[in-house]
Amino acid sequence: MLEARLQTGALLKKVLEAIKELITDANFDCSDNGIALQAMDNSHVALVALLLRHDGFEPYRCDRSLALGVNLVSLSKVLRCAGNDDIITLKADDTADVLSLTFENTDNDRISEYELKLMDIDSEHLGIPDTTYEAVVQMSSAEFARICKDLQVLSDSVQIDVTKEGVKFGAKGELGSGAVTLKQNGNVDKEEEATLIELQQNVSLNFSLKYLVNFTKATPLASRVSLSMSSEVPLLVEYKMEAGYIRYYLAPKIGE
């Protein structure tokens, strides 16, 4: 059985907000390592990989590996019934036909209990090879969100060019064109806002802005984001949390 108690229930609410528009149903794979999820969007263009490590919960118990098939819209509706400061406990027995959720307020004088019906999901699990990327950009997650939203005004796609001087996000469309360049600035006072680039080789890649904007729904989970790129392989957008991560992969656009 699974029992996982999360002191900061808001984290789970934010995680759901970050994935529910990209994927509708997914298996939460529970093991002694923690709770993981991997799912592709319906159009097979993007993939979400989530890990909530066991040490982020107190206590965390999972005697046997379990796959909890969840409709994410339903789960996010139930999670809206939890207060932001509530402690959330997830429980499922080995038959895994329901997921029990308990929300306790911080004064411990209001306890709410919900049960969510689970479903059987045939998941298409993808093997993601370990990749050494040609360019890795670490930057403020809020800045990344702003750039994607701003450039969406101009186009469906963004061209990302990375050189050792900086990273340039450019978009061209019917109404005109726009570009935002962030210079590498590791010495700024505010570490959280620094743009850092690790570069083996310059890269220039095109991606769908609709998906990138969707990925930025994870912004409340981390102040930093990393973009890992190589020519002609999927982009990795990673938000690291205290005990886990949310990774998005996006297939590049190619040719004309």
Partner: peptide, 14 residues
């Protein structure tokens, strides 16, 4: 307009 690739082209199904 560039063409959108499918992720399946890059990652093998397990």
């Amino acid at each position: 307009t560039p063409i959108q690739n499918d992720l399946g082209e890059f990652f093998a199904m397990i």
